[in-house]
Every structure is written in structure tokens, then in C-alpha cells.
Simulated assay, not measured.
Amino acid sequence: MSSTSENTIELHGFNNLTKSLSFNMYDICYTKTKEEREAYIEYIDEEYSAERLTKILKAVTDIIGAHVLNVAQQDYVPQGASVTYLISEGPIVEVPTESFEESPGPLPESVVMQLDKSHITVHTYPEYHPSEGISTFRADIDVSTCGEISPLKALNYLIHSFDTDIMTIDYRVRGFTRDKEGKKLYIDHDISSIQNYIPEEVQDEYDMIDVNIYQAHTFHTKCKIKEFDLDQYLFGYTKDSLTHEEAKEIAERIQKEIDEIYYGKNIDI
């Protein structure tokens, strides 16, 4: 059986729709010297080590009700980490109706829902600008599920797990399943925007743009932090230690970096 927000549809076989969530986040930092840059990269590698990322993905599996089959994790030299979870259908319980509504998921209390074979991966990419004193940390998380539950229910927890200036979020539904009469079903839940799965208090912190292709069941949302506080982008010191001119120049560099990533293009000033 496959539940929707309005009714219950009896399927021919099982629900084999594939739903994929790609969560891409960026953290920006100003690192003036080589020592600052190396210290920032070291901090990121420690804060988002393979061990910490594994714990984050384990919480995601709990939220979507998955059973872990295999875990592969790796810290890389000189920097970065990757974790891959191979997961399968977890215990099946009565599925709450609200799970099919466009609403944020839990933080991170276990919500057990029907799930078929799938996977969750995360890769991190710390890097730095060759001359502008800008260091950037990027993390890519992919949650791919088959079955009734949408991986969008894990989005709220993922947002709260990372300190992020920019988020790029993609959601796609692929394949089809069939009802008892053989009619193809290409999506099994209503969705108008990924933003509906993000809590209002988080939405208030970001400027957001949607680019959706409803006919193809493809949804895209970009988010950029609204408030700019230079102290949040300085590693190991505050803006009080800078001259007014230095603070202004650094702020312009950081804001340019944020805008370029958000809009996906180089900006000439």
C-alpha cells in the first residue's frame, strides 16, 4: 500500500519511485595569512571529520527510518572527508499522515517510515582562494530513497547540522510505480517548493530563490544568509583589531565571494 496526503492507493508490487535530495552547503572565512589558512583547514577537518559526519548521517537514517547495511568512511590527506551509508528498508510502522505534508522534518527524533534500498553520502571540500585571502568549506550530502518517505524530511536536521552561509538544495523524483490497474504513478506526494520543508525561523535568516520544473518533478532552491557580521568571518580575531579601511575591504571580498557562489557566476566589481 502507498499512502498519500489524501487517500491510500493500492499498488501493483511495491513503491519503486526514487526520490533524491542533494544538500550543498558553503561556509566562507577570511584567512589573511598562510598560518590562518592552515589553522582554518585544520579546524574544519576536525569539526567535520569522517567520524562526525558518520554521526550526522546516522541521525538521518533514524529520521527516515532506514536500516544500515554498510558504512564506509574516510578522512583524506591533506584535507576533506567522505562517508557513504548503504541502507535498506527499516521497521514498518503505521505511517503518520503528516509525513506526506510539505512541512519540516524532526530534529533529530526518530521517525520510522517505510523505506526500500537506498544510500546516503557526504563529501567535504575545504579550499582556499590563491590570492584573495578567502577560504571556503563545502559539503555535499545526497540522500536517495525508494519507497514512501521523502528524504526532504531529513532536510531540517541537515541544515541544523552545519554552520552555513549558502545552501543549494535539489530534490528529484524519478522512475514510476503502478497501481493495481497498471496506471503509472510518477510522484506519490504533493510538493510546491522545497522551502515548505524548511522551518520559518530558518527561512527568516536567508534570501531564497526557487527554480522548479513541476512537470519533471524537479525542484531547486538556493539560500543566502541575510545578516552580515564581519566578526563571523574572521578566524582567530575580531574586526576591532582592523582599521576601518581594512574591515571595509575584507567585508567587500567576503560578500563578493558569497554572491558569486549564490548566483553561480563570477562578478566583476
Rank of each mutant, 00 (worst) to 15 (best):
G147D: 06
T84C: 01
R52D: 06
S110Q: 15
G147F: 03
D190L: 08
V77N: 09
Q255C: 12
Q215A: 14
N196P: 01
Y263F: 09
E200Q: 15
D170W: 09
F176N: 05
V211K: 13
I213A: 11
E38A: 12
E227A: 14
H119M: 08
P199H: 08
I63C: 06
E252F: 07
I209E: 14
F219H: 13
S192H: 07
S103W: 01
V95S: 12
L11M: 04
V112T: 11
K222Q: 03
Y263D: 02
S118C: 07
H123M: 04
L230E: 06
S103K: 15
D231Y: 07
T243C: 05
G133V: 07
S99H: 00
D45H: 08
C146T: 15
L158Q: 01
P96V: 02
V71D: 01
Y233V: 12
S20Y: 01
I141K: 02
Q79E: 09
T136I: 12
A50V: 05
M1I: 10
E10I: 14
D62A: 01
V143I: 15
D45G: 13
T168S: 08
K19Y: 06
A81Y: 02
S192P: 00
T54D: 08
L107N: 15
L11D: 05
G175M: 05
E35Q: 12
K58F: 07
T177W: 01
G264Y: 03
Q255S: 10
K180N: 02
A39D: 14
I191V: 11
V211E: 15
L17D: 09
D116L: 11
H12Q: 12
Y214P: 01
P104L: 11
P130N: 11
I225D: 01
I209Y: 08
D190S: 10
H220V: 05
D45Y: 09
L115D: 04
Y30N: 08
V111L: 14
T33H: 08
Y206W: 07
T124F: 02
I159Q: 09
E252L: 10
I198Q: 06
P130L: 09
E10F: 13
S88F: 01
G13C: 07
T218I: 05
L230A: 10
T33K: 08
S118K: 00
L21T: 03
D163C: 09
D179C: 04
S99I: 14
K117C: 12
E200R: 12
A66V: 02
E201H: 15
Y26A: 06
A39Q: 15
E89A: 04
C29Q: 13
I169L: 08
N196S: 13
Y157A: 03
Y85D: 04
M113P: 00
G182K: 06
D188R: 07
L17F: 06
I64R: 03
A72K: 13
F14N: 13
A72E: 12
S144R: 14
E47H: 13
S99R: 06
G236R: 11
I198L: 09
L230R: 09
L11R: 09
T168H: 10
I254D: 05
K117V: 13
E109P: 00
L155A: 02
H217C: 12
I159L: 13
F228L: 10
I41Q: 04
T4L: 00
G264T: 03
S103G: 04
Y125D: 11
I9F: 06
F235N: 03
I169Q: 00
K226D: 07
I258S: 06
Y43K: 15
E127M: 12
E51N: 10
A72P: 00
T238D: 14
E148V: 05
N70C: 05
E51G: 03
S144E: 14
I56K: 02
Q232I: 00
